[in-house]
Amino acid sequence: MRDSSDSAGLKRAPAPRRTLAITGADAFLGRNLIGLLEDDDRIGRIVALDVKQPSTAGPKTRFYKVDLTQPSVDARLAEILAAEGVDTFLHMAFLASPTHASAWAHELESVGTMHVLNACKERPVRKFILWSHTVLYGASPSNPNFLVESQPLRGNPESRFLRDKIDAEEVVARFAQQMPGTLVTVLRLAPILGPTVHNFITRYLGRKVVPTLAGFDPLWQLLHEVDALAAFKRAINVDVPGTFNIVGDGVLPLSTIIRLAGRTRVSVPHPMAYPMTRALWAAQLSEAPPTFLDYLRWLCVADGERARTALKFVPSFTTREAVLDYAGAQSLRDANLLRSVG
């Protein structure tokens, strides 16, 4: 991936051959980003931090087995940062989908971020990049059609998934105030969709029959996986502190997305849907807990203008194209599955 946009008044990141640390290195974003950065001459070394070595690790990558849920992990992280001379820290150890293991998720996301920040205080880095989500704004009928970065994060507090991530954003915001020497960039990504990514959105749209709420057809906004990676590359290459919504262009009604994905929709009245989803979630048969039904009801669409002007990030896929790209790969998977079964 060539980066051609380091122009127009943006300060170039100094000194080639920088060292970059990535937490959550074996997750979708981390793994692909390591693969991309292996080819990037400006990066001298990649420090991969995870419990498992990423398969994309090349000669530039040095893997450290680090479990962010361990109590003494901040000291170990600080040691690694000092030993490797880390310049940029990418904190991406977050879960892409809601999990039943919410206590563990809390340790990883909320407490884990605290450990990471403690290490970055002990041994300061030049730049800190956080992966965050636009779903944290929360779906609500009182949302404006386009949420800007200054909007408070009003994600449903009953959802552990959202609350832990909001916690992480809050501590990072505090860290940014305490550490004026560190550039803090927070990227709030719209739900990622694409041919290779797996998360609860792809599983939801991958159902043969996709449940929606009767009479509700909110506008959705998605981000193609390539654009998600491009945004992080962008944030690594230029020094622009701040919070940015990273979103694909355009919106689509949920029903159109389901139709484009070639699926059938079944409408459930919303007073019934909440208890039903609770039961299904408890039985591990649904992709997300009932708090996520809000996103099937109301708007949660963010405005990507700031990323466009300040970060100079321009998505190359619209929401519709992301859906079509996903749908193409998904139908191929379906076909392969059919063949292997039959």
Binding site: N145, F146, L219, G250, V251, L252, P253, S255, T256, R259, L260, A261, G262, R320, L324, A327, G328
Partner: peptide
């Protein structure tokens, strides 16, 4: 491939505010 028939009664795209 993915929805000529399914998209018969709606626009392929809506404007940013949801008008179809």
């Amino acid at each position: 491939q993915w929805g000529r028939i399914a998209l018969r009664d709606r626009g392929e795209e809506v404007d940013p505010f949801g008008y179809d």
